[in-house]
Structure formats: C-alpha cells, structure tokens
Write a protein that binds this DNA or RNA. Structure first.
Lengths: 248, 248
DNA sequence: ACAAAAGTGTTCCTCTTACACCCATGA
DNA sequence: TCATGGGTGTAAGAGGAACACTTTTGT
C-alpha cells in the first residue's frame, strides 16, 4: 500500500461527543504493530494529506472514515512541528503504515464535534474505535495526548463564544442536556435557574411543545437551536460605544 | 544558494506595529523578480522551515531577520493549504528564490507584535521594508492578503481577551495611547471616561508619576503594564457559579 | 409514598452606558 | 488667548449572582 504524499504533513482529529453525562473522545488502536509498539496503544484518528487535498479536506476524510459522517463541525487548532515529536521507532511505524518515506512529520490538530447516537456508536465499534471519557485518558501514542489537550482547551474557549454546543446535542434537546454539556465541557457547575433565564431570554433556542416520554419524573420539554436568531445576535455584538466582553 | 528543506512548509508573518495613530504592518518587496513578477510586488516576510526547526522557531527567525528583534510576541493563526494557492509562475519564483524543488507549499500564518520606535523603523528601512497602514493595503502577492486579513482578525479577537495591547506600546505609555490602540485595532470609537474607569479600576496598569514633556496641552501621565495583577485576574476568571462572558 | 428531575421569582449588586465641562500647557 | 488633548462624576438601566420550593411523573 502506497499513498502518494508530497510532503510529510498529517492531520490528527480529536472527535468529541457527549453522552448526556460526560465529554467523550473517539480513540482508535494502532494498526500494524511492530516491535514493542503494541496494537493496544491508543491514538487519535489521523492521516497524511494527499496531493490534491487541503488540510480541512484531509481532516474531513479522516472523519468520514472513522465515523461514517460528513458535514461534521470541524475546527483547526495548533500545529505540532517539533522535529523530534516522533521518535525513531514511531517513525518506522509511520512510514510502514502509510507507505511513505520521510524523516519528519508535521501534524495539524483538529477537533470535531459529533452528535453521539446509537448509529455512530455502532459504526465506530465495528471499526474498532471507542468513545473514551476525556477526563480518564492518561496516555496516547506520540504527542497525541498533547494534541488532545490542545483541542479540549480550544473547545472550552470556543463553546462560550460560539454556538458549537448544539453540534454536540441531538436536534431536539432539553435545557437540562444543554446545561449538562456546558458543565461537562467546562468542568464547572451552573445554577439551573440562572441558566434557564439566560438561555431562554437570549432567544437562541425555541420550544417544540414536545416533551420527554416514559421518564420517571416530570417530563422536560424539547427545544430546537435557532440559527437565525444566533446570527442576528452575532451581528449586534459590536455595540455602540464601548468594548464588550473585556476580560482583563 | 540552497537551503535544505525537508518539506514544503513555510511561515508567513504579519508583523504589526502601532505608530500612535494607526495600525501598521511590515511589508517587504519581492526579491529576485522574474518575468512579470515585479520587484515592486509587496509581500509578508516569510521563510521555508529548516530541517531542525519548529514552526515558531522559523517564524522567530523571520522576525529577527526582518526587524532585528528577538523575543517578539508571536502567535500562530491559520494554515493555508489549498493545493493551488501558489500559481505556476509564483511556484517557479519560490523554487528559484529559496533554492528548492517542490510542487506545493503549505504555509502557516503568524502574527507578531512589535513596539514601533525609531530604531526599528531605521532597521527595517535599511532592509528595504516598509510599515504600511493596514487599512490601505489592497493587494499582496499570492494569498498574502488573505493571510494578513486572517492575522488581523485573530489580533482583534485576542486583544479584547488577553493583554497583548501592551506588546504594541512602549514600556511607558499614556492612557490615551492605549485607547487609541484599541480604537485603531478594532475600528471602533471608545468613550474616554468609561475607558479610563475600566482600565484603571482593573488595576492592570500603574501610574509612574512621570508626565509628558514639551506637549502643547496638559501633559499626560505615563503608566506601566502590571503583569502580576493581570496574571492574578486570569486565575480569577472562572468565577463561582456561572459562565462569564457568554456572548450569544 | 417516594424518588427524581423539571420548572419557576426575587433581591442585591455590579458593571455598562451615556453624557459635558474645566484644566494645564505650548505656541 | 487659543488650540489641543488631559482628566474628571453621576445617574439610569441591564445583567449577573445567590438562593429554595413546588410540580409532574413512574415505580
């Protein structure tokens, strides 16, 4: 197997999902183990870029292969370019695995957000991938732990400024789910009354009139994300006469 | 001249400075013009990465060459990876200029912030580089205009969340200078009373007791940036019970 | 009846905004 | 004395933070 590459640039994707309780990330096992590089070692999904492909295209290809989904929310984070980020043994493995020859691989980190559901879990399980609690991950191959940490940090920054939370939830969701998501991603706890007030008064979600069924408590209403209101809100962001959201 | 490169990855830097009135960026002229690629074409300073160099190291090298300064504030922005981002003619020029052979160049954008002063202006002028009003730039070679726009947009986002404004000002500065900087970078106007109140009550600047001299108006006091207070403020950012700075 | 999560209001306080005049200096 | 930017205060309103109980459902 030889993939034609024109330069040793790869992409690695931290694919995040939310199971209602915790933030998960998709990990795969090393294929083609050699020597003491075990097939049990976990890594982020990634690939070398192809000749006629941009980096986001490569990242989308990785996502489609690993989740079966296209049109996933995708965001570039940092570049990892330390000349020694891949040690000699790992370098051998990479060259063998990808069918290339190179002395150095620069990788570009991405994070992706998917709406976790049974279909995806089935698909990824068939592929041998697993969804792992982000908090519980202690080691990954090469510098993938660092790439993951960087992706998580970028996600945390972004989730409070842009409406990416909705990329991690089903189309219809309860306010409680939304709140739990913020709590899981940011590692904080949020007052429920204030949260409802803020999110409802912002107008970016709309009630559907549908309610949970077969739950052993008062059924919660389902809401929808309201893109148009959000876009309007973004336009109004630079208000009249002063700086918003100055966080010094 | 042959620089050894192990892959066609380059860095391009938007070096920003502030002259007290306007945001400036450092542009250089194309060297070694060929055909109708003129020596008058303007570009961002950039370079191919060397074999044993990380990307930030390459960017710092570019900065040191173009400004004579080290220890400059430097921040990575986006990656430009369209396979056709460099047309054939430009590709010829790149290969000739850098003494390499490649079919494709992926470039990584950086922005840098420098404290503009006579020394730097002299240095850059000797090098044939110029400081140009960011607003006035209409075209640059290849996709450098896009790289610049991306850098500016990253700077605008960052300046309201982190204390990078001080990287663009002299060590001692007046509140008016600081305000003008925000106005220039963000393209807004700010109420002077509110600005003073906010910046002074934050405690991140300290008065020096020194005042302007030889100005034909009431002399303004000079202030210093107070790093330690700022770092403390950052730690307090995640407050007790709710999400800060939610901008939906 | 009980367990479990949904849903709801008010008060206090801080921060944002809008706005206009006198001061100190050099020319 | 004039031109220039420096420097100051206040009031009204919006939004953030803290806080506890009732409702609805399934078991």
């Amino acid at each position: 197997m030889t993939i034609e590459t024109n330069s040793a640039i790869s992409v690695d994707c931290a694919v995040f999902g939310f199971d209602g309780k915790r933030l998960k990330v998709l990990l795969i096992k090393r294929k083609y183990p050699i020597d003491d590089l075990s097939a049990e070692d976990l890594k982020l999904p990634g690939a070398m870029i192809l000749e006629n492909e941009t980096l986001p295209e490569a990242a989308n290809r990785v996502l489609e292969e690993s989740t079966g989904l296209s049109e996933i929310y995708l965001k570039q984070t940092s570049i990892f370019s330390a000349p020694d980020r891949v040690n000699e043994k790992e370098m051998d493995w990479i060259c063998k695995f990808h069918g290339i020859r190179t002395r150095r691989v620069v990788t570009v980190g991405y994070y992706a957000l998917v709406k976790l559901n049974q279909g995806i879990v089935n698909y990824t399980t068939r592929k041998g991938a697993t969804w792992v609690d982000v908090d519980s991950i202690r080691s990954l191959i090469m510098d993938h732990l660092e790439i993951l940490a960087d992706a998580l940090s970028a996600l945390q920054k972004e989730i409070i400024h842009t409406p990416i939370a909705f990329e991690l939830l089903p189309r219809k969701f309860t306010i409680h789910q939304l709140q739990s998501l913020f709590e899981a991603v940011l590692g904080i706890s949020i007052d429920n009354r204030n949260f409802r007030k803020k999110i409802l008064s912002s107008g970016i979600i709309s009630p559907t009139g549908e309610f949970e069924k077969n739950v052993s408590h008062k059924p919660a209403q389902y809401y929808l994300f309201n893109k148009s209101v959000f876009r309007k809100a973004m336009k109004d962001r630079f208000r009249l006469n002063f700086i918003n959201n100055w966080t010094y």
